[in-house]
């Protein structure tokens, strides 16, 4: 114990089991397997082995049934063995959630780990994944999570996830729409408040929000968008490419 630190020091026994160490770190009591996001592990006790999801799946056939997302397979590892694994994410708040025969959709970048009793699937909404079944999972948020109920419209950057309600539709601000009908959408550049587009939730359920953050570069999101461009013919794809180059030169978002 170091004087004046004000926090206890932990050993393998006193470290919390399946509980928060502090608001920014969580200790998983591992007995078997857990899916953990790559880079989320900051420390561990015991006999724990970390293997990439695809590598582990070659040994354990059940993994393929639980991890139904080829896109994110590179960004997840399976922690297996006995011990305690501490996970954290950039000093963000870490929360644990217990699902009971339910489903919850969450931003992939904020999901830190989940028990293998849950099933992971890619959401229709890009950058989000859905967890189905019964079990515990961990997710980070910038500041405490805010829970709201529909009807509600959320900014895409602030949206952390949703549970039990139907997938959102996109809502465009009606003032902005009215003006763009008059001027033509192409002429609307520079007339944006940055809040024209929201995700619109209806029905019954719970929506999870966080304070918005600087966009994290998500390699998987780039792959998602790129795969959508297969819908375009060669000429449109070229036009899109030019527009994207123009945008990157402007330094816009």
């Amino acid at each position: 114990m170091i004087d004046g630190l004000g926090t206890a020091s932990y050993d393998a026994q006193s470290l919390p089991a399946d509980d928060n160490v502090n608001p920014y770190a969580f200790s998983i009591a591992l007995a078997g397997e857990w899916f953990v996001s790559k880079g989320a592990m900051i420390a561990y006790y015991g006999n724990v082995d970390f293997a990439g999801v695809s590598q582990y799946a070659s040994r354990a056939s059940w993994v393929a049934a639980r991890f139904s997302s080829p896109m994110y397979a590179d960004e997840w590892v399976v922690a297996s063995g006995q011990g305690k694994v501490v996970v954290a994410d950039r000093g963000h708040d870490v929360n644990s959630y217990d699902l009971e025969d339910g489903n919850l959709t969450i931003k992939q970048a904020n999901l830190l780990g989940f028990a293998p009793t849950l099933e992971l699937k890619q959401s229709i909404v890009p950058g989000f994944v859905t967890l189905i079944g019964t079990g515990k999972f961990l997710a980070s948020s910038n500041g405490p999570v805010i829970f709201v109920e529909p009807p509600f419209r959320a900014d895409p950057e602030a949206l952390l996830g949703w549970s039990d309600c139907p997938s959102p539709s996109q809502h465009y601000d009606h003032h902005w729409m009215a003006q763009s009908f008059m001027a033509g959408v192409q002429g609307m550049l520079g007339r944006e408040s940055g809040e024209e587009r929201q995700y619109d939730f209806t029905g019954a359920g719970t929506i999870l929000l966080q304070s918005s953050e600087k966009l994290v570069v998500d390699a998987a999101l780039l792959r998602t968008v790129e795969s959508h461009t297969n819908l375009l013919d060669a000429q449109s794809a070229g036009a899109l490419g030019q527009r994207l180059i123009a945008r990157s030169q402007q330094g816009g978002r």
Binding site: V148, P151, F152, Q198, S212
Partner: peptide, 11 residues
């Protein structure tokens, strides 16, 4: 971050 009700945003 989000809202409920009939709200619009104008730059």
């Amino acid at each position: 971050l989000g809202y409920s009700g009939q709200v619009s945003f104008r730059p």
